[in-house]
């Protein structure tokens, strides 16, 4: 059974964000191929969990993807690719996918589905991901801290060009450090490319 956690963004409550987390994923190459082929059944934001530092970090990109989709100001082709694009500090979509998207070697995977139409529910997302993803579904708690179990601090710092921002040890255990890093990174995402 696949665990799907549904988040409701303030101001966009009517467009819930469904999030599923997988570990030990063995078919990342297959999933990535579906994205490259633009298989309509695989309309998700598939993210490498190593690049997500907090739930708020993920929701920030989700908010902007929903917002730009609904205000007809997408820079990327689809709302889900916009989500991947919004995570990156620069204006390069391909680079965004390389850094934040699923790669052939990804084992810890975050799948996000924006519920921009009524027929997408946590159940339909869970059912489809259960068939599509070969890996162990990890339940996500209320604060979403499970999403950050695979954070690679060095990779994050390198991508945002913020040396030593996120704590070492590959994972920010220190809350003060994480809060600070999140504040800077959300800011960089907001002022990106402009």
């Amino acid at each position: 059974m696949v665990h799907v956690r549904t988040y409701r963004l303030p101001h966009y409550e009517q467009y819930p964000v469904h999030v599923a987390l997988f570990r030990d994923v063995s078919n990342a190459a297959f999933l990535r191929k579906q994205l490259l082929e633009a298989n309509e059944d695989f309309d998700y934001a598939f993210l490498d969990a190593s690049m997500i530092i907090s739930l708020t970090h993920l929701l920030s990109a989700s908010f902007m993807a929903v917002h730009r989709s609904l205000t007809n100001s997408l820079k990327a082709r689809t709302p889900h690719s916009e989500l991947v694009f919004r995570l990156h500090p620069n204006n390069n979509i391909g680079e965004s996918y390389r850094k934040f998207g699923i790669s052939d070697t990804t084992t810890a995977l975050i799948a996000v589905k924006l519920s921009l139409s009524q027929d997408i529910t946590a159940e339909t997302v869970a059912a489809h991901l259960g068939e599509a993803v070969q890996g162990e579904s990890v339940q996500i708690g209320d604060d979403g801290h499970e999403l950050t179990n695979w954070t690679d601090a060095n990779k994050v710092n390198e991508t945002y060009k913020t040396p030593n921002l996120l704590g070492k040890n590959g994972h920010a255990s220190d809350n003060t450090n994480l809060e600070h890093a999140q504040a800077v990174i959300l800011g960089l995402m907001t002022i990106k490319g402009s």
Partner: peptide
Amino acid sequence: VRCRREGVAVPAVLGGD
């Protein structure tokens, strides 16, 4: 964002359009 990076205590930027 610049201030925040440099460690000056200012409000974080959360989003914008």
